[in-house]
Design a protein around this nucleic acid. Structure first.
Lengths: 105, 105
DNA sequence: TTCATAATTGTTTAACTATCGAAATATAAG
DNA sequence: CTTATATTTCGATAGTTAAACAATTATGAA
C-alpha cells in the first residue's frame, strides 16, 4: 500500500452514496449483492450507481462477478485491512506498548 | 459515529497532503508535533498547512494545544478507531466467526 | 429474430476543493 | 514600545467531482 493507493481508497469511501454501498457489501459478506438490489435498497439511479461501482472497484475496495444478466458486487476485505494498516503504520514511533498503554490502538 | 461524521473523516484523509500530515502525527504519538515542524518536513506553505489542519481538526481526527508561539497538533486515535469500526459494522451479517474463517477481519 | 430487462458509458452542469500570495493576529524577545 | 517569528484568515483561480439524462451494450425470454 502506498500513498496514492490509500488516497484512492479513502476518496472512494468519502462520499455518502459510496459509503452506504460499501457498508451494504461489508454486511453481506463474500457472496455479494447484485447491482439491482443495491439500486433498490439505496434508491439510486442505475447510471449513478454504476459510476460509484466503478470508483470503488478502481480503488480495489470491491470486486464483481457476472451471473447471467446480473452483476454481483462484493467487498474486498483485505484491501480495507491494508488501508487501515497504512493509516496506523509506525504508530507512536513503533513503540506499540506505549501506544496500547494510552488506549490508542 | 454516523454517516455524515464518517464521510467527514474519510474526506479529510482522502488528500495526499492531509494523509501525510496525519501519518506523521500518528507516528509521533500523543505528544504531537508543532505546525512549523510539519511545514518543514512536508514542504507545505503555512497557509496551505493551516487549511489542512482545519479540515482534519474539524473532522475530529486531530487535536491541538498552544504552547507559547507554537501550536502542537496530535492525532486523535479514538476517532480513527471509531471510523474503522463504522466501516466494518455488522460485517458478514454479524456472523463474526464466518468472517474470521474467511480471513476477512 | 424480436422484445424486455440489467447495467454501463458519454455529456453536460453545478458545486466543491486545493493552492497561492497578501494581510492580519498573536506571542515572545530586545 | 518595537521588532521578529508562528500561525491563521481572506480573496482569487484552477482543477476536480457528483448527479441527471439520454444513448448504448449485453444477456435472457418469447
Amino acid at each position: 500500500m502506498d500513498s496514492v493507493e490509500a488516497v484512492a481508497k479513502l476518496s472512494a469511501l468519502a462520499q455518502p452514496t459510496r459509503l452506504a454501498i460499501y457498508r451494504l457489501l461489508v454486511a453481506r459478506g463474500p457472496e455479494g449483492v447484485m447491482a439491482g438490489g443495491i439500486a433498490e435498497t439505496l434508491k439510486v439511479s442505475p447510471a449513478t450507481l454504476s459510476f460509484h461501482f466503478k470508483t470503488l472497484s478502481h480503488a480495489g475496495l470491491i470486486g464483481s462477478r457476472q451471473d447471467g444478466r446480473f452483476v454481483y458486487y462484493a467487498a474486498n476485505f483485505q484491501a480495507m485491512n491494508a488501508m487501515v494498516a497504512y493509516l496506523t503504520e509506525n504508530c507512536c514511533g513503533g513503540d506499540v506498548s506505549a501506544c496500547q498503554a494510552d488506549g490508542l490502538i
